[in-house]
Design a protein around this nucleic acid. Structure first.
Length: 439
RNA sequence: GUGGAUGUAGCUUAGUUGGUUAAAGCGCCAGAUUGUGGCUCUGGAGAUCGUGGGUUCGAGUCCCAUCUUCCACCCCA
């Protein structure tokens, strides 16, 4: 297909039918963030490339092969953000938000860009809901951030999600652990797969989640990070687990959870769903106590998570969750004849000025076609305006679902009558027994 | 980045060993007396068969390239 009519690989259009679902998800996330005292931050789609090199880490796959980097006309190296944390940290520092009281609690909706080989749930442009919390080293902060994600999933109706947590320690205990890992795996250099051999030097922790059966078998006997945690890190991890238990959030400790971005320390976690087939991480995050200082700010503990919007939506659809709340038209005003079509047009306009969603025919269609259209767009009520109505000032308002008809004035007083009819119909729908008793 | 599939109207698909104007259902539009939608009936629009080459008298069907989507790796939200 021509370039003109085909979106670039790994990008998606979100059409009106889907955007209703997006809005519903965003509403839940926004509400939950506000409920927990997080404020929205919006940062640029692109940043200086250095920002990501420094924060995400120069040796990570994301930086080495997945960034959209280019030179702008001023010869600056610019990169489309591959994740949300770096920009949030940068903005937090640039504007000194940490002077306004700690912890600083931020949330955001962003698009992210990674040059990947696209698949379902793995896009080149994708969207994240993220939160970041700066200035608390307490395990309670970890638990609150995790709880925020858990609440969002619960309110969205996402089921069968597992929360897996781990601690990868601080730089000190991690160094000791890495050394122990190297020593252990070095005894198996003749059996490890090729990629793991290269990992042995660069990042031995990655060998732990190798999918090759041989490597996985060897990894089973490997030293465990949790046994190498220093006292502080160990106490912190215990605190996180205790806090989660305290608020009834189930979790499993998974020692193979190792995040792919360099800035993580201590707590790391993932929410994983199997609703769409293969296990899919829909939300992941953790603590990054060293990042703020690394970026030139004060030494400040911090943590956060990113939640993949497309992935969340995939899971919801796989579970056939009912998200599709349409924004239906309240009243469709059909018109018979030219004079009436102007009257209908004016009335629809006036209703909209009063905050009522109204529509009328703009295609010059016959009455029958107009009614069909009203049905198609899901209009709640319809009304026909013709010469008779214009003369008498009265029209018939029809409930499109029940077929029930009410005679109403089309001039002054319509709004009041309409509100009353709507309220009565709502009542009948919600409590059918009431109308039965009436008769 | 590696390996493997896929691609026919808006959607889901049919299309025989390559052979005349590429089918169907759903959807869309219009009608079935200018006063009322959902059911039914009739008609219509809509496809350069992903794109570009090649083989052939002839290609939706075969070959090559390319793009998209999807699956498994890799990685990750």
């Amino acid at each position: 297909m021509a370039l003109l009519t085909q979106a670039p690989r790994g990008t998606q259009d979100i059409l009106p039918a889907d955007s209703a679902k997006w809005q519903k998800m965003e509403d839940v996330m926004r509400q939950e963030a506000h409920l927990q005292g997080f404020g929205e931050i919006r940062t640029p789609v692109f940043e200086h490339t250095e920002l990501f090199l420094r924060s995400v880490g120069e040796t990570t796959d994301v930086v080495q092969k997945e960034m959209y980097t280019f030179k702008d006309k001023g010869d600056r190296s610019i990169t489309l953000r591959p994740e949300g944390t770096a920009g949030a940290v940068r903005a937090m520092l640039e504007h000194g938000l940490y002077n306004e009281g700690l912890p600083v609690k931020l949330y955001y909706f962003t698009s992210c860009y990674r040059y990947e080989k696209a698949q379902k749930g793995r896009l080149r442009e994708f969207h994240q809901f993220g939160v970041e919390m700066f200035g608390s080293a307490s395990p309670l902060a970890d638990a609150q951030v995790i709880a925020l994600a858990a609440s969002v999933f619960q309110r969205l109706g996402i089921r069968d999600l597992s929360l897996e947590i781990n601690s990868i320690g601080c730089p000190e205990c991690r160094a000791r652990y890495t050394a122990a890992l190297k020593e252990y795996f070095s005894a198996y250099t003749d059996q490890l797969c090729e990629t793991c051999l290269s990992r042995l030097e660069r990042n031995p922790m990655r060998i732990l989640d190798c999918k090759s059966p041989i490597c996985a078998g060897i990894a089973e006997g490997a030293p465990r990070m949790l046994d190498y945690l220093c006292e502080d890190c160990s106490r912190h991890f215990e605190g996180v687990k205790h806090s989660l238990t305290e608020i009834g959030i189930p979790y499993t400790v998974n020692p193979t959870i190792v995040r792919g971005l360099d800035y993580y320390t201590r707590t790391v976690f993932e929410f994983i769903s199997t609703a769409t087939g293969a296990p899919l991480t829909v939300c992941a995050g953790g603590r990054y106590d060293g990042l703020v200082e690394e970026m030139g700010g004060p030494s400040m503990p911090a943590l956060g998570f990113g939640l993949g919007m497309e992935r969340a939506l995939m899971i919801l659809e796989a579970q056939k969750a009912d998200l599709a709340e349409k924004n239906p038209c309240s009243v469709f005003i059909a018109a018979l004849g030219e004079e009436a079509s102007f009257a209908a047009f004016r009335m629809a306009h006036e209703l909209r000025l009063s905050g009522i969603s109204a529509a009328c025919d703009v295609n010059g269609r016959g009455l029958k076609a107009q009614m069909k259209y009203a049905d198609k767009i899901g209009a709640l009520y319809s009304m026909v305006l013709g010469d008779n109505e214009l003369q008498t000032g009265e029209a018939v308002l029809k409930n499109m679902e029940t077929g029930e008809k009410h005679t109403v004035f089309i001039g002054d007083g319509f709004l009041e009558q309409f509100a009353a009819i709507e309220a009565e119909d709502d009542l009948k729908r919600d409590f059918p027994q009431l109308s039965e008793n009436k008769e």
